[in-house]
């Protein structure tokens, strides 16, 4: 499986390179370093969210409420900023992480203690969180002129020519690579998703593991909520509406098995980058951005078809092994 996953990631890298090369052959400006940094920055929220979603999907759950969590946390951050414009940005970030994690914990508790199917829980919280935004904001927008310059400036600040937003995506990727590949919790994600029954026998609390996956994904959604609102300098009820599907699409394209138990952080990142590059290239190439939805959809279908084919190939390997075993 690891070999197949590796090849999936190698394949994605190849596809992304071919895609970029194709675009560059006609529009060389696309591969100018400055533009590539733009693409990365543009895709950063999707990368952060896809990493969160990947953890949840690994444990055989799904988090449909991420975009609503993002919007609600973003609104809360914006309103805090309006009320206390002097509050330093690190405090805002801690608030965003904690508030997002709390919203994720709501999902997690419902899945863990009441054992409601995750798709139902997060479908519910998806609308509940949106509703709460309307309640706390009265449907009003928080606009750029109401926010403090420090608040909106932070994600756009430059470090070594790369905006803070992109750096945060890179840092998140590094941290969660370690969490997933090198901590007992990360291993528990794979065990719970791969075989919940065996995980129970191995002394892993399945519900608790899923709870933590939801908390972490909520935390990342919260962080993205602040970054999103600050970057676009506006907070309203409908921000990032429908974005949850793009997050899941990035994961599926990145080879995170929807049935749980297999996939990597790298896959989620590459899936997000793939979608981000298409999204950014379409206007350059002169295709209506509305085609992006159709292209993302096609990419998902192709990705799933690849997963199915990988599964079948694995079946043949088993037979070969069995043959070798009886002959030798």
């Amino acid at each position: 499986m690891i070999r197949i996953l590796k090849s999936r990631e190698a394949l994605l890298v190849g596809v992304i390179l071919v895609l970029v090369a194709l675009i560059a052959s006609r529009f060389p400006a696309f591969v100018a370093p400055a533009n590539l940094v733009n693409v990365l920055t543009d895709t950063s929220p999707l990368i952060i969210l896809a990493i969160g979603q990947a953890m949840v999907i690994l444990t055989r759950c799904i988090d449909l409420s991420m975009a609503s969590n993002l919007a609600l946390t973003g609104m809360v951050c914006a309103m805090i900023n309006v009320a206390y414009p002097g509050l330093p940005i690190p405090v805002i970030i801690v608030v965003a992480l904690a508030f997002g994690a709390a919203l994720g914990a709501v999902n997690g508790i419902l899945v863990w203690k009441l054992t409601i199917p995750p798709i139902v829980v997060t479908l519910g919280t998806l609308t509940i969180f949106r509703g709460i935004i309307f309640v706390i904001s009265d449907g009003a927008w928080v606009n750029a002129h109401e926010m403090s310059p420090a608040f909106t400036g932070f994600p756009r600040a430059d470090i070594l020519g790369v905006p803070v937003l992109a750096w945060l995506a890179i840092i998140t990727a590094a941290i969660f690579f370690v969490v997933i590949a090198r901590t007992p919790l990360g291993r528990a994600f794979y065990a719970v998703g791969g075989n919940p029954d065996a995980a129970v026998y191995a002394g892993i609390n399945v519900g608790k593991t899923q709870f933590w996956a939801f908390v972490l994904s909520g935390m990342l959604a919260g962080l993205t909520g602040y970054l999103w609102v600050a970057r676009y300098s506006v907070a309203y009820v409908d921000i990032a509406k429908g974005f949850e599907l793009e997050i899941i699409a990035a994961c599926v394209i990145g080879g995170i098995a929807i049935a749980g138990g297999s996939g990597t952080v790298m896959g989620a990142i590459l899936g997000a980058l793939f979608l981000g590059i298409i999204k950014n290239a379409l206007p350059v190439v002169g295709i209506s951005p509305f085609w992006q939805l159709a292209i993302s959809g096609a990419a998902i279908v192709i990705a799933v078809a690849f997963n199915a084919r990988a599964g079948r190939r694995k079946g043949r390997i088993i037979l070969k092994r069995a043959e070798a075993g009886t002959n030798g």
């Binding site: 499986m1 690891i2 291993r187 794979y190 065990a191 791969g194 075989n195 065996a198 138990g261 297999s262």
Partner: peptide, 13 residues
């Protein structure tokens, strides 16, 4: 198959 092993993970894990 159901309760003992996580078939998708490598042996050492």
């Amino acid at each position: 198959g159901k309760q003992g092993a996580v078939l998708g993970l490598p042996i050492y894990q």
